[in-house]
Design a binder for these strands. Structure first.
Length: 256
DNA sequence: ATGGTCGTTGCACGA
């Protein structure tokens, strides 16, 4: 089973590239973030014609997440399971695809450490842990993937010195991510590339992509039954090139 | 040291 995640930064703008990419890469499951579409505007028919069932949770304008699958798609959950206040934003959707419980996330950015949005990000990550624990056990086949807006370690940052005091690298948000890993999840890309300085997001500005100034913030986490099946992981940086790219590259994993 | 580019919607703001 080939599973991928991609923050497309507007599915309306990116749809031609997503269609081309699906035909080329042939993932069985694709998790999409930042569709920026209402559910009415989501192009389910386009994906159906390519052989994919889909579930979308959107609000239009901002946020919006979706799961596409050609290995079955059932038990769809929008927003958080596991209690607490529902998220006012459309940032999380879960479905059972090919026997794997897949949660697709668009974690809040945080903006800056002194911003209310950063506290929202930390609360959101705590609720994500409750969500995963409510729906599954560490011995189940579980994937949590998407745009985490967290670089797990300084290895995932092109120049850690430039991010001192910034979001995406703060100890509190890294601890939340570690909490998810302590529960039983593994960073599948890092499992296959222990020392790689490779990134999944580059700012559109100042030629950051071509200068190699990026962050690895798009993650695929899997429980040990998934991690033991994972034989390949790659960031498809080619998808960040060319005409009208997203600022994120897809991350792909292959499960035996 | 600063700002740079996108995508949204409107003529600013979030990322």
């Amino acid at each position: 089973m080939r599973l991928a995640t991609w923050n497309v930064n507007s599915l309306k703008v990116r749809l031609p590239r997503v269609e081309e990419w699906l035909a080329d890469v042939q993932p069985d499951v694709l998790c999409v973030q930042e569709t920026k579409l209402s559910d009415d505007a989501f192009p389910a028919q386009t994906f159906a014609a390519l052989g994919y069932e889909s579930a979308h949770y959107g609000q239009g304008q901002w946020n919006g997440v979706a799961i596409l699958s050609r290995v079955g798609l059932s038990e769809v959950v929008t927003n958080f399971a596991g209690g607490g206040d529902p998220d006012p934003d459309a940032r999380i959707i879960t479905a059972l695809c090919g026997g794997v419980r897949v949660t697709c996330v668009y974690v809040p950015n945080g903006r800056s450490l002194d911003d209310d949005h950063y506290q929202y990000k930390l609360r959101w990550l705590a609720q994500l842990r409750s969500h995963v624990a409510a729906l599954s056990k560490p011995t189940d086949q579980v994937v949590v993937t998407g745009d985490f807006n967290i670089a797990p370690t300084d290895l995932d940052v092109y120049d850690p010195g430039k991010f001192v005091g910034a979001t995406h690298v703060s100890p509190a948000e890294r601890a939340e991510l570690q909490g998810l890993c302590d529960w039983g999840m593994t960073d599948l890309f890092r499992q296959h590339h222990a020392d790689a300085k490779l990134y999944s997001w580059w700012d559109y500005r100042a030629g950051d992509f071509h200068q190699g100034r990026g962050l690895r913030i798009d993650l695929v986490l899997g429980t040990s039954p998934v991690a033991s099946r994972c034989e390949f992981a790659v960031i498809d940086r080619n998808a960040r090139k060319g005409q009208l790219p997203s600022d994120h590259a897809p991350v792909i994993v292959d499960l035996a």
